[in-house]
Design a protein around this nucleic acid. Structure first.
Length: 465
RNA sequence: GGCGCCGUACCCAAGUGGUAAGGGAGAGGUCUGCAAAACCUUUAUGCAUCGGUUCGAAUCCGAUCGGCGCCUCCA
């Protein structure tokens, strides 16, 4: 039974798809005016874990993600560079999916660029204008907050008081009330991109695109809508207002919000010099899998303090998994199954699933993995493990990898290689002859080629580093 | 000022009423020609502080201290 924390209620609720079979999920995608940073990626990774977990339940999933390829920053930068919108955004969009692939983030089923869905957005604006939820002012269209009494429900706006002097109006447009937000922006200059609409040429506001695209592909009511905490207000509150005003139906059943990532205890900011893209980290030689591991190891609703120490710890934890596989695969086992170990595997599986069912408690799921590794290592040392146990463990780790995608590739560790085998044979002959100078020299040669050897009671094992 | 999150060992961190998971690091041990690696063991009478409720509290309540985020670009 999957429990998820719903921002709408502030508590955990049991999740089931509305129709019992298909989960309709929308996740806020990137604004492609720059490369995404590791904070963005943390959000996409928790959504990926959610996605994989939902699929494991046997539900069908329709997962939609938007690409915001039209907004103020994009327009400003593309005009500065003298290129058209698409030429400007396409490389960032491509880089985004490349980063996702590097971090083993699965692609959503439907990817929706805002610029390809303007007609759907215009339809919503028309409807809102007709019903008095929107009004025109200086050629732009605004949503009229006063017509939507429950406005701000998600962020509990009714309980808020604005700090005196806080910025109330960041927009340069005219509005009836400061909190009204823009649905459709009139162009401010000649060279701004625009779309024709019955209420005047312009371009969509940011909030509008998500409502239009989500409802186009998922219907008026979504099961799940994800984002990070900074989206709660105003973005998601505005989505609720404009969507529900347009359809008179509940927009989203479960709102999920991931916490932010900090770097060395501080908010990530370019001005602080602690701003990292995935590429920055890869250039420093860090393993993408270690990055994924680190971002997964802290549950999504908790702030994650990213440090290079913690990244090194993540890499070490992955090495432990890798070592375990190496040991398990190369162990000589007798046929049959030890029932005690079968119970141990079942226990790990149960803890793993219960952890993820508990609002995606990835820390708990990882603990289940390492507990099984320790117990298996002891069983191997005591000679208690048998073939069928090994098969069951390997099989379960395939499931684990489908779900968390943090299992390092290990097949290459134990590939046959006649040349290396013969070097090892020569070294062992030298050892038998107590010619340790020779034996150490061969070991050094192998090490230079990235081959690590381990002498055990069962003989010498080797693997690629 | 308002809203929200958080404070658990050297570091990260799970645990929301029944006696402190897991990872990293350190230390000890096993194995070994040696080393390395690996593996095992070990590291919190105590969970920011104080008070309360309870047979029982890291968990609930109150207060205090400290950290972080948001309050109309934000993952």
């Amino acid at each position: 039974m999957l429990r998820l924390t719903n921002t709408l209620s502030g508590t955990q609720e049991t999740f089931e798809p509305m129709d019992g079979t298909t989960v309709r999920m929308y996740t806020c995608g990137p604004t492609v005016y720059n490369y995404v940073h590791i904070g963005n990626l943390r959000t996409y990774i928790y959504e990926d874990v959610l996605r994989r977990h939902l699929l494991s339940k046997g539900w069908k999933l329709v997962h939609v993600m938007n690409i915001t390829d039209i907004d103020d920053k994009i327009i400003k930068k593309s005009i500065e560079l003298g290129v058209d919108l698409r030429s400007f955004t396409a490389p960032y969009t491509a880089a985004f999916f490349e980063d996702c692939a590097t971090l083993r983030i699965q692609r959503p089923d439907i990817i929706t660029p805002a610029t390809e869905h303007v007609p759907e957005m215009i339809e919503i604006v028309k409807k809102l204008l007709e019903e008095g939820y929107a009004y025109q002012e200086s050629d732009s269209i605004y949503f009229r907050i006063s017509r939507f009494p429950t406005y701000g429900r998600l962020s509990r706006l009714d309980k808020r008081e604005l700090k005196i002097g806080a910025r109330i109006d960041a927009d340069e447009y005219e509005k009836e009330e400061p909190q009204d937000f823009v649905l459709w922006k009139a162009p401010k200059s000649e060279n701004e991109p625009r779309w024709e609409a019955p209420f005047g040429a312009g371009r969509p506001g940011w909030h509008l695109e998500c409502s239009a695209m989500a409802m186009k592909y998922l219907g008026p009511t979504l099961d799940i809508h994800c984002g990070a905490v900074d989206n709660i207000f105003p973005h998601h509150d505005n989505e609720i207002a404009q969507s529900e005003a347009a359809t008179h139906k509940p927009f989203v059943r479960f709102w999920l919000h991931g916490e932010h990532l900090l770097v060395e205890g501080e908010k990530m900011a370019k001005s602080k010099g602690n701003f990292f893209t995935l590429k920055d980290l890869l250039e420093r030689g860090y393993d993408p899998l270690a990055i994924r591991y680190l971002l997964i190891s802290i549950p999504y609703r908790k702030q994650l303090n990213f440090t290079f120490d913690s990244l090194a710890a993540a890499a070490a934890a992955l090495d432990r998994i890798k070592e375990f596989f190496f040991r398990l695969r190369t162990a000589r086992l007798s046929a049959g199954a030890n029932p005690a170990l079968a119970g141990m595997i079942a226990g790990a599986r149960e803890q793993f699933e219960a952890g993820l069912d508990d609002d995606l408690n990835t820390a708990e799921a990882l603990a289940a993995i390492f507990k099984l590794i320790r117990e298996s290592n002891i069983a191997l040392a005591d000679g208690l493990m048998q073939e069928d146990n090994r098969a069951a463990i390997l099989q379960w780790f395939e499931v684990v990898n489908e779900r968390l995608a943090i299992v390092p590739p290990t097949e290459h560790l134990v590939q046959d290689d006649a040349e290396i085998e013969s070097l090892i044979a020569r070294r062992n002959e030298a050892r038998r002859n107590r010619d340790f100078a020779m034996s150490d020299q061969i070991r050094r040669e192998l090490l230079d080629r990235g081959i690590v050897i381990e002498d055990t009671r069962e003989g010498t094992r080797w693997r690629r580093n």
